[in-house]
Amino acid sequence: MVDMAGAPEHDVELDASGLSCPLPLLKAKLLLNGLASGAVLRVTATDPGSQRDFRSFARLSGHELLRDEEADGVFRYWLRKA
């Protein structure tokens, strides 16, 4: 079970569980394109490669990675749109 205490609030949620990279990131990018600046997207993924992908994407895109966490092979990311 994931401890969600202190997790940022989010406006939109994407469940990319079971998808292999780069699909979780591609689906997140599509959702972010439709969001207003400042909106927060929470992504759930199960591909371990998503950690590297989301951290790099946030750094290169200007979106803010508010939090990322992993528990029992489930990865969660909170991205604030630039």
Rank of each mutant, 00 (worst) to 15 (best):
L19R: 12
P8Q: 03
A45C: 07
A7T: 00
A28Y: 09
D11R: 04
V12E: 14
L14V: 11
D72N: 14
S56Y: 09
L35V: 05
H63W: 11
L31Y: 07
A45I: 08
L41F: 04
L66D: 05
G18E: 13
Q51K: 07
L60V: 15
Q51P: 01
K27C: 05
A39C: 01
P48N: 04
S20D: 13
T46Y: 11
A45G: 10
D47T: 02
G34E: 14
A7N: 00
L31C: 09
E9G: 10
V43A: 05
R55P: 03
L65S: 04
D68Y: 00
D11W: 06
A28L: 15
L30R: 13
L60M: 14
R52G: 02
E9P: 03
R59C: 04
A45E: 06
L23G: 00
P22Y: 12
A36H: 03
E9Y: 04
E9L: 10
L30H: 06
E64C: 04
H10W: 15
S50Y: 00
H63T: 08
R52W: 01
E9T: 07
T46A: 11
R52K: 08
T44V: 08
E9V: 08
G18W: 09
P8T: 01
D11Q: 08
G38Q: 02
S61M: 03
R67P: 01
L23D: 07
V12G: 09
F57C: 06
S50F: 02
S50R: 04
V40W: 00
L23Q: 12
G38I: 00
D11L: 05
A16E: 12
P22Q: 12
T44A: 14
Q51L: 05
F57E: 12
A7I: 01
R42S: 06
A28M: 10
L19F: 13
A36I: 05
E64H: 08
A45Q: 07
D11C: 01
H10E: 15
K27N: 11
Q51C: 08
P48M: 06
L26W: 09
A16T: 12
L25F: 08
D15H: 13
D15A: 13
R42C: 04
D15C: 11
N33F: 02
R67Q: 11
G73M: 10
D47K: 05
D68M: 06
L66H: 00
A36V: 02
T44L: 15
P22M: 12
L35E: 01
R42G: 01
P24K: 09
L25Y: 02
S20T: 11
K29P: 00
